[in-house]
């Protein structure tokens, strides 16, 4: 349904959130501003979000994408929970992005689980914008 609505809307909607306890929000806030400037409708859910709260925000905001920022190393605990909850809530077609510090050998594992893309340190803003423009937001099922 989200995809159907997305086609009738001018701007794609993305929820960005800090998941878990880490407070490193420099990156996610820069991404938020860059995406807003590129014409996306950005909802920044803020700090210390639980997987449940993130999925609630995605549902409430009728988002096409959700971007999870994690620099604490807890991604292998938290990201799979978000993916599972999205699926259980009937939001499996929402695209999931992960940004932050993710060890190289864990990137394929996250992609395998259904994450659309992992953006590490040094990613340029145009790269993220371009990726979102090229992709619909429906990656996993």
């Amino acid at each position: 349904m989200a995809e159907h609505l997305a086609q009738n809307r001018a701007a794609k909607r993305i929820v960005l959130a800090k998941v878990g306890l880490d407070g490193h929000d420099r990156g996610v806030k820069v991404v938020a501003r860059a995406l807003r400037d590129a014409g996306f409708h950005v909802i920044y859910a803020g700090l210390w979000q639980t997987p449940e709260a993130v999925v609630r925000a995605v549902a409430d905001e009728d988002a096409d994408w959700v971007g999870l920022s994690i620099l604490s190393g807890a991604h292998m605990t938290l990201v799979p929970r978000v993916l599972r909850l999205l699926k259980e809530t009937g939001l499996a077609n929402v695209g999931v992005l992960v940004g932050g510090i993710i060890p190289e050998d864990e990137v394929p594992k996250l992609l395998e689980l259904g994450v659309a893309r992992v953006f590490g340190p040094g990613t340029s803003m145009p790269e993220i914008v371009e990726f979102l423009k090229q992709n619909s937001g429906a990656r996993h099922d």
């Binding site: 878990g20 306890l21 880490d22 190393g73 605990t77």
Partner: peptide, 17 residues
């Protein structure tokens, strides 16, 4: 992080951290 945020290790919010 749980200690920094004033949470005990057995708090549900500490999970994975």
């Amino acid at each position: 992080l749980p200690t920094l945020m004033g949470l005990d290790s057995d708090d549900p919010r500490s999970l994975g951290e």
